[in-house]
Design a protein around this nucleic acid. Sequence first.
DNA 1: TCCTAAGCGAGACGGTACGTCTTGTCTTCCA
DNA 2: TGGAAGACAAGACGTACCGTCTCGCTTAGGA
Lengths: 208, 208, 208, 208
Amino acid sequence: MNSSAKQPHSVSMDRRVVRTRRALQHAFLKLVAEKGYDAVSIQDICKAADVGRSTFYLHFTGKEHLKRSGLEHLRRELEAHRQRQADANVSCEALEFSRPMFEHAKDHLHIYRALAGSSGGGVALSTIRDILTDQLRKDLSITQVTSTVEREFRLQFLLGAFMSVLTWWLDAGAKGDPAEIDQAFKALALPGLSQAKPISLPSRPGSA
Amino acid sequence: MNSSAKQPHSVSMDRRVVRTRRALQHAFLKLVAEKGYDAVSIQDICKAADVGRSTFYLHFTGKEHLKRSGLEHLRRELEAHRQRQADANVSCEALEFSRPMFEHAKDHLHIYRALAGSSGGGVALSTIRDILTDQLRKDLSITQVTSTVEREFRLQFLLGAFMSVLTWWLDAGAKGDPAEIDQAFKALALPGLSQAKPISLPSRPGSA
Amino acid sequence: MNSSAKQPHSVSMDRRVVRTRRALQHAFLKLVAEKGYDAVSIQDICKAADVGRSTFYLHFTGKEHLKRSGLEHLRRELEAHRQRQADANVSCEALEFSRPMFEHAKDHLHIYRALAGSSGGGVALSTIRDILTDQLRKDLSITQVTSTVEREFRLQFLLGAFMSVLTWWLDAGAKGDPAEIDQAFKALALPGLSQAKPISLPSRPGSA
Amino acid sequence: MNSSAKQPHSVSMDRRVVRTRRALQHAFLKLVAEKGYDAVSIQDICKAADVGRSTFYLHFTGKEHLKRSGLEHLRRELEAHRQRQADANVSCEALEFSRPMFEHAKDHLHIYRALAGSSGGGVALSTIRDILTDQLRKDLSITQVTSTVEREFRLQFLLGAFMSVLTWWLDAGAKGDPAEIDQAFKALALPGLSQAKPISLPSRPGSA
DNA sequence: TCCTAAGCGAGACGGTACGTCTTGTCTTCCA
DNA sequence: TGGAAGACAAGACGTACCGTCTCGCTTAGGA
């Protein structure tokens, strides 16, 4: 009963279990936001959630697992959100990934600030980045860029820039309409991308 | 005797001290590259450096201190490198920070891969980022951008993109001439920057 | 429903209950014989008996209770056996307790080896000893020994010797006729007892 | 540095180590006397000795080890005591083991009561028994008894009786001269032994 | 050249946290 | 609706590090 994926969320799951997990996840977010991921011990979480430490291990294998359980939830939400966006908005311009992300972040500000803001140490940044990587890769594959290296290079550039901007925006309170920040981001990013000139790069920089 | 700054480097410093510190720093880099920063315990470092654990605490207050001591060294080197570059090359184009950085990274590849590569978990990324922030801020302050917010936004964008590209390049082995990757980076970054249109942003997104 | 004494054995007792208890007691004996009393956890017993752990607590208050429940059964059997012997055999020589005990042990060898043999750690030795103490006390009270202290001293001597011999005999497989070992035991014990000389002992060594 | 046997007792051993071990052993005895061996947790011992729990594990592998360390000490002492007795008293009558034992027990009453008395649950009884077994075996081997089985049988009888008497005597406060109780013990034991008649026993009751 | 101050190793020590295990109670769910 | 399943709190276990400390030995660098 350890995996959060085992039970499709509250389908015939003991109500105590639901209660306990929610308490743990909530306490986790709170503490991470306060002290940063590394400084939060499992004991802290249990104390904050008012849950016995052994009970913690009935549900999660460790701090890492608890974190991932939350992120998995996030991923599913984001994926759904993106899908809805894509369905509604046909005018699929380039860099489709950024807008839904900003919107979703604003909608779940408290979570994102804990997991992606500078408080909390950006625990989940790499996970979010992975999620976005998938999407962006698709976006770029349909462009005119032929070289794999060139494509990967642009991927890194865009994602780095985006994650940085996202974190900054979250830290600042995510004020304003997500559309605004998205527009600003694209204003900086697109001109460079549209440059046809495929800069020469070492033919095979590696795969790591 | 704890601070590395106390002694102006090898001026009348006991040779044993030098030996010990070097051994510790070397072991630290090796282990971080192998297992990642968090997974390296002080005990590991001492064992690898063949240094008594209590001796460690004669020189450093903890793992964090040891890391910073190495980065301080790096910072000074980088600063010097930048200065030399600036003196020699008068054609100060924009985004002056990137080129020296790529070069310095390639020159000290083994250190950078341990501290900034994905192995090692990017321990020093934030420190490097801080170093670059100072420089980039100066670069941007002389541009036409007036709004503080707009400037900060561009800063985040550029640094994020740069750090991402740098890490990627390092992970791939830092093949090719630093000038090449620098050129590629600027090709993506500059067009967006030169856009005069200062995108409207929430007047005061924050200060963090 | 906890006490085994509550129901006078199979008088209108739910057959499922009987089944469950028997399963637990059986598993208990098996495991004690295998690993010794202390090393057997309630979890082990339940697993071996294929009974839910909470069910265990419906019938017994703990491991100790389970053990006693078995011994109570034993005590009743032993008492009955003794009575039968006494009725049949009128030639009540001294040390009447030993013979029925050896016989009963041989008759229920598997139980005795688990509870009194060196495997199992002699869990029940003290209980058996208590049972025998009652009987022996009566035997001794009719002898010529007057001093309470002297009587107690002889009690301890005899019981200690008997329990030790019994355990040894059980560990060795309880081979041979119980009458033989009983005869041997008495041959060592009786001469000393028949000595009339009441050795001087500190008038009141205590009461424990 | 875990074994108490490694260092011949305070020969160049860190005084802190001596202090800590003594504190632990002392606390152990006290608690065992109070609550019985099983009910004493390592945490209790550490708290009572005012020693960090991790420090405990620097010296002992567990409760068992701590117990044995004390008994090892006891064994050496007893052996020495026996030797002294044997040297002084040439009139080596039979059953030489009992007298020194009673004397030693009286000399170290507080230890014996904790480890062998009924309070404390007779933690060390089996160990003491083992020690005595060696000695008694020698005593019996020089008697006229030829059969191995017969000899083993007498061994069990005597040891059982002796341990029982010893425990009883300790529980009662070990009042009186050790010589008195020893004399009483021998008065019960010797007549049976001197009986020449080697009772028939199953030729080979086993070896366990 | 010596000898004195330091660097150093070894490791004892009290802590904190870990992940595991067992116990006895209490609650949910299902047949 | 009563009993089985199992969630739960409590707390001990043995391990791993941490940071502090004391102890002697070695050794470098100034007298």
